[in-house]
Design a protein around this nucleic acid. Structure first.
Lengths: 250, 250
DNA sequence: TCTTGACCCTCCTCTTAGGTCAGCCCTTTT
DNA sequence: AAAAGGGCTGACCTAAGAGGAGGGTCAAGA
């Protein structure tokens, strides 16, 4: 008994288009093509389709399903890897849902949802490590003796600065982890951008000032530990980079 | 202070490409375009970008983010809806992960993973109910009213199906004797597994189809007596259970 | 002033897993 | 013989950008 696309579709609840698609990908090839060009599937193909659907349900990409069906050696490996990925996604989803709930209650209570709340949700996520969280609170002190005092611009401006500082630090940490030289142009540019931002927010910080500040961080336990807590070596990397910039700017 | 795309990218960790994209969508429009056509963003745009990123992290599609930022009336509605969607996705993910685990242990123990196991994972999912409904009504007529009859497919296949059907019926009979409610989750799951098995063997049976079939059994002497011969009340119990499933699936 | 390198622009194609026509061919039924 | 209901290919569409080609712009050093 051979089945046409429509029939296979009805049996398996896969659309005709999907069958075409699987054929084109070589994932499910009809056992026979009629004279008129019709796709005809047999029992073996139906069985294969069931397996495809099984893996599809596990959210495997079609290309990987092909591999899974072809060579069953890696099957276990792939399954385990997939499990890890799905677990990560689940973790992430849970974090996002928590944030969402928070936002909902905030709105319900009439709070307009300010930026600090907005970014609370990111703490659990990869983009904003826990390390960043504390830093966000202390970064104001990090930059100058009293930059947290908002002279003008108001609260939103302050939050913007905290966000920028956090983002900057993350970039530095990432560069460090990526093995980028402390005097690499890209990194130097990042610092310049950061300084420009600071300057645009009422904090006059020259390259030399910044270098002095980072040297201070090395000797100050609180600041150093904060930076090192985020990424081992970050305090030193930052200082080297700042000094390189100051030397170049000088 | 105005920022170029690169600078905004560095501050916000959004790629330049994404900024282009947001511009094209009208989601984030630069406050100024330089003479040379450069995009220039101000503080207000940076702030808006933060909000965009917030919602993006919540997995809102960009189009909806636009609405969210434009009119804050529906904000709560949209947040709640989004929460529901994410919760569903989480549920689904959990089911899939469980299935995955099951497959992994099956393979570890050397079992070749048979179809029944394969489809256990699908029981909880909506995919297995919704789409089937209408199409199968039609199919019941098209492919005969009695999918239990093996038209062809070979003897081993037939034996397997007969074995599965017998096992299923025994489980139903046992449940009946054990006093398990017809709408108990465990029982419903057993039926779903059975249907999944049927489907994997070329017999399209939706929950509604199955319910119709069991009703038919009640009126057909041959079938009813067969069931009642196995266990008194089984035909009725089966019908009640099937109808409960169909109602739930609907 | 010229060149170099880092930016910037637009436009094009590519990705997943198919969905949705449009236009034409095949099979079955009336 | 014609109508209905398949089937086929092929082109274009989706979300959220990534990657690259080809070309313009800006600042710095020689």
């Amino acid at each position: 008994m051979l089945y046409t696309v429509k029939e296979v579709s009805a049996i398996s609840h896969v659309t005709v288009k999907a069958l075409h698609h699987y054929h084109k990908l070589g994932l499910l090839v009809p056992c026979e093509i009629s004279e008129a060009g019709y796709r005809l599937y047999g029992a073996k193909e139906l069985e294969r389709l069931q397996h495809i659907l099984f893996y599809r349900e596990l959210e495997f990409p079609l290309e990987q399903i092909k591999e899974l069906l072809e060579k069953e050696d890696d099957r276990l490996t792939l399954l385990l890897r997939q499990e890890q990925q799905l677990l990560q996604r689940k973790q992430r989803l849970e974090g996002v849902i928590a944030t969402l709930r928070h936002s909902v209650t905030s709105i319900r209570e009439g709070k307009p949802m300010n930026d600090r709340e907005m970014f609370k949700g990111f703490e659990t996520e990869e983009a904003w490590n826990e390390a960043l969280k504390e830093q966000n609170q202390h970064l104001g002190q990090t930059y100058g003796m009293e930059p947290l005092q908002v002279e003008e611009g108001g609260v939103p401006d302050m939050n913007e600065q905290a966000a920028e500082a956090a983002a900057f630090m993350k970039e530095m940490a990432d560069s460090l982890k990526a093995g980028i030289r402390h005097d690499h142009g890209q990194l130097q540019q990042a610092i310049r951008t950061h300084l420009a931002f600071m300057n645009s927010h009422g904090h006059a910080v020259s390259a030399a000032d910044f270098a002095a500040q980072t040297r201070f961080f090395l000797s100050d336990d609180f600041h150093r530990q904060m930076l090192e807590g985020q990424q081992t070596g970050l305090a030193y990397y930052l200082c080297a980079a700042a000094e390189a910039l100051a030397a170049a700017a000088e």
